[in-house]
Every structure is written in C-alpha cells, then in structure tokens.
C-alpha cells in the first residue's frame, strides 16, 4: 500500500498534496493519453476512450520537421481544448520554464508535462514542482533521472523514448533500463545502497524506498515513438502503467480508428487474440524516422539530465 504522503490534516481540508497529485496519476493507469493540437482532435481522442489529452501546439513529428524554438501553447488553444472535452487536459511547459508552468496552472490544466519535446528554457535547473498545486509529469531515460525529477516534485514519470519518430526502440530501451535498475537496487544489500544513491545522483531515502518496494513511488508511463497497438501493448508488458501517444495517432491514416485500437490494446496488452483483432484494418501508420538516422543534437531524449 502507498505510504501516507501528507500529515494527518485533522478537520482541515488540504489541496495540492503529494497524495492528490500522485493519486491523479494512479487514476490514469491502464489508459492512453493522446497528443492533440485542436479541439476537434481532442474530441476524437475522448471519443476513442483516451483517459486524458495532452494539449500542444505542434505534435513532436512537426516540431522535428519544422525546427525553431518550441514553447508552451497559446492559452486560447488550451482553453478551447479544456472546453471541448470532459476528460483531464495536460499541457507542456519547457524544461525549467516555471512561468509557463504558472500560466498553465492558472488556466486550470490538470497536469503539466515539463517536456524535453519543447526547447529547454534552463540548461541547469528543472522547475521546482513542489511550489505548485497542479501536478507534474516528467520524462526520464533511466532511474537516476526519474528519481531526480521525483525529488523536484514530479508526481508521475514517463519514459522518454524518442518523440516524433514512430520508432519505439528508445522507449523500449528506457523502460527496460529503468526496470533493470530497479531490480538491481532491490537485490543490493542495505549497506550498498549509500553508494548506489551516489551513483544514481539521487537522495538516499528515495533510493532505499525504491529498493524496498521494487517500484517507483509514482506512476510510470511510457512515451516516445509509440505508433501501433502492438507498440503500446509491448510497453505495457515491459512494465509501463500506461501510454502516451504523441504523433502516432494524428499523423496516421485513420486517427479515430487507430486511437480506439491503441486504447483496447493497452487494456488487453497481455492477450494476443485481442491484439490481433484490434491491429486489423487500421490503414497507414505514421511515416517513421529511424532514431539512428537523427543526428545527435536533434535527439529530444538527450534534453534533460
């Protein structure tokens, strides 16, 4: 069972606690969160059974193609999406851009993604996420990075993958790596956890908690390059608790049908008969880019530290 994360509040009501922030992510488990750039796309996502939508100005594939500095979306566009759907709405802020995050909180978004998909605003510091009522999700490529984000107040982690590619290999690598590093921690004798914390560049208390429970203290989703129902199911089988799909849906031939298929595949990720059925007749998947062919400076997963 989760540990209490806030003191007993007596008769008082309390808002913005770690428990309501982390709890929100618990409610998204087993679900699919879809990138949308218009209210119309948000409606399609909700119709398909998305548990939440991620409002952004351009999907990662377009950010990659068009280049330039990528920022928080226009508040009017985010408002339009909030009005269009009844499911939770997330939105992205640049790494370290705490004022974009303040604006998103003021707009009433349900989760802020401090995202490497946008151009970082600070190459030294991430946002102090404890200072907010709205919860944050952050990307990670390994356990140390995940624990540093949690230390800063992230209430949900997603593996980064390589956004906007339709190439799932980096998402696979990041999920496997995080899982392996957690398994290794759990196997260490207690007196070796101090050095493990030093190596992970994460606080000892958090490292010990992960070693004891065998899991992160927050929900772990996957993201980056997921384009098919099979991709989503594989990530679930690798230990993801849910799936973010970015460009994979609205850059494909039939977004509504593909979105619904990915939702079903996420729930029945361990049932090949269901997966075979939902994988039929989806039309063209997004045109992919192999991560290997992207020059190093243009790899989004390497933003953040």
């Amino acid at each position: 069972m989760p540990e209490p994360t806030s003191p007993n509040a007596g008769d008082a009501q309390v808002w913005g606690t770690a428990r309501v922030k982390r709890g929100m992510a618990e409610m998204l488990k087993g679900g699919v969160i879809m990138d949308v750039v218009t209210a119309e796309q948000a409606r399609i996502a909700e119709d398909a059974g998305a548990v939440a939508v991620m409002a952004l100005e351009r999907v990662p594939a377009d950010i990659r193609a068009q280049g330039g500095v990528s920022r928080m979306s226009d508040p009017d566009m985010i408002d339009g999406i909030i009005q269009a759907v009844s499911i939770p709405v997330m939105a992205k802020a640049r790494i370290g851009h705490f004022v974009e995050a303040q604006i998103l909180q003021s707009l009433g978004v349900d989760y802020v993604d401090e995202s490497e998909v946008l151009t970082p605003a600070d190459y030294a510091n991430h946002i102090d996420k404890w200072a907010f009522t709205v919860p944050f999700v952050c990307g990670a490529t390994n356990l140390g990075e995940a624990l540093r984000r949690i230390t800063e107040g992230a209430a949900m982690i997603r593996s980064k993958g390589e956004a906007g590619t339709g190439d799932v290999s980096n998402a696979t690598m990041h999920m496997r790596r995080i899982r392996q590093e957690i398994a290794r921690l759990s196997s260490l004798p207690a007196d070796e956890l101090f050095v493990a914390a030093k190596e992970l560049q994460a606080p000892y208390e958090l490292v010990r908690e992960v070693a004891e429970t065998g899991k992160l203290p927050v929900v772990l989703f996957t993201a980056g390059g997921i384009a098919t129902p099979a991709d989503a199911a594989m990530m679930m089988q690798l230990g993801a608790e849910g799936v973010f799909v970015g460009s994979g849906i609205f850059k494909s031939g039939n977004p509504a049908q593909r979105a619904a298929a990915i939702v079903k595949a996420t729930t029945f990720h361990d049932d090949p008969d269901v997966l075979a059925k939902v994988s039929r007749g989806l039309g063209e998947a997004m045109v992919g880019i192999n991560v290997d062919e992207i020059p190093q400076p243009h790899r989004l997963a390497e933003r953040g530290w």
């Binding site: 806030s6 009501q13 808002w15 309501v20 009433g108």
Partner: peptide
C-alpha cells in the same frame, strides 16, 4: 479540476 482535488 485537478487543482481543486483535496483531502478531508
């Protein structure tokens, strides 16, 4: 919305 989520 989520910012109004609470414990009591």
């Amino acid at each position: 919305r989520q910012v109004d989520s609470f414990e009591a």
